[in-house]
Computed example of a mutant assay.
Amino acid sequence: MNWTGFALNVVLCAVAAVVYFGVIMAVAIRIGNQSIIDIFWGPGFVLMAAVSYLASIGSGDDLGRLVVLALTAVWGLRLGVYIGNRNRGHGEDKRYTALMRHQTGSKVGFLIRKIYGLQGVLLVIVSIPVQLAMYEDGAFGVFGRIGVAVWAIGFLFEAVGDAQLAAFKKDPANEGRIMDRGLWAWTRHPNYFGDATVWFGLWLMALGHPAGLVTVFSPVVMTLLLLRFSGKALLEKGMRRRRGAAYEEYAARTSGFFPLPPRRKAA
């Protein structure tokens, strides 16, 4: 294990994240739409993986490095394209509009504290297993293969769930209705469950060295973000406010996160 190379890699990824989010912030200020950062969240991890892959040339297992890069890229780029298509033509997300009403002091300083700096730190922290995996000398073994399988399950849940929801919303007959079909009948958030599962899969790929165990904080942090902060909690609060009893009935018969058979009757 090349610990010096890995330590330098973390620094390089931090610098890359500063430049990356700095450019995004400059563009967002210019067009007056801070929510474009959501589009670049997934691709940001692709950047972390690409920087790590290039910096680790001559270190680690070539097959493992390539697999981790490829799977991170597939996940991150798909997410970016999906969110970009979903948000196109809708202007700034109301969450960011509400946040900007509380601006104090310098606009740039406020944005760094509340949005871009925070996301930059999270990007580097959550991507640590991907970075570490690039420097592990052991062959891409059992844990790596299990990780690929877990990643695939998560990716399918996320991609299929997003596709089902997009098709549902596109049909005018579903106006005002709650999506409760397909994967959405088994979990209220197949996309968030899939996202978390993808990161547990990437973490498993970092277990080629015992140090990989410590990086379990990465998928845990991602899961907490999805459950407690920017994901499930915020979305469900809005759905309960807008849809009331209809959403409560859906929530009563459908698992909140982990996929489970739908209940026959609301609790």
Rank of each mutant, 00 (worst) to 15 (best):
S56Y: 04
H209M: 09
V18S: 01
G64N: 10
K114S: 09
G117Y: 05
V19D: 03
V121W: 03
I57K: 02
L213K: 07
E136S: 09
S255Q: 04
A252H: 07
L118I: 13
V220G: 01
I146V: 15
L183V: 09
V27T: 05
A50T: 12
I36V: 12
D38T: 08
G161D: 04
A7K: 07
T215A: 14
D171R: 03
G60H: 08
R113E: 11
G84N: 05
V15Y: 07
A245C: 00
L71Q: 08
L118H: 04
P262I: 08
L99V: 11
G117D: 02
R181D: 06
L47S: 01
A7C: 06
Q131T: 13
Q119H: 05
G91R: 09
G141Y: 07
M205P: 06
L71H: 10
A73K: 09
V10A: 08
W151Y: 15
V142H: 07
G238K: 12
A139V: 12
V221R: 02
M25H: 04
V150I: 15
A16E: 02
W151C: 14
V68M: 13
R86K: 11
D162N: 11
S218N: 07
T97M: 07
T254H: 11
I128R: 03
I24H: 01
G64A: 15
Q103G: 02
W203N: 05
Q164L: 13
F143A: 10
A166P: 01
G105M: 08
D195E: 15
R95W: 09
A167N: 06
A133V: 14
R177F: 05
F155E: 03
R243M: 05
Y116S: 05
P259A: 14
F143V: 03
W41T: 02
V10T: 06
E236H: 06
N87A: 08
R78T: 11
A49K: 02
M239P: 00
A152F: 13
N191E: 01
V68F: 10
Q131S: 14
S127I: 13
N191R: 03
F200R: 08
A17P: 00
I31Y: 09
R240D: 00
M25D: 03
L213M: 13
K114I: 03
L123N: 02
A98N: 05
W199I: 10
S230P: 00
R241T: 10
M205G: 12
S127F: 11
V220D: 00
P259W: 13
G84T: 04
E136W: 08
A163R: 14
A246W: 01
E136V: 15
K237E: 10
V15A: 15
E175N: 09
S218V: 12
E248K: 07
F110Q: 02
A49P: 00
Q131K: 10
P219R: 10
G89H: 09
V19H: 06
G120T: 04
Q34P: 00
R177K: 14
S106F: 04
L66A: 15
D171F: 11
N87E: 05
T4N: 08
I125R: 08
V46R: 04
E136R: 11
M205E: 09
H209A: 15
A16R: 07
L204S: 12
A28G: 05
L71E: 08
L224G: 07
V19Q: 07
A163D: 10
F157V: 11
L69I: 13
V148K: 03
A50H: 03
W203Y: 05
W184L: 01
K169L: 13
F168V: 00
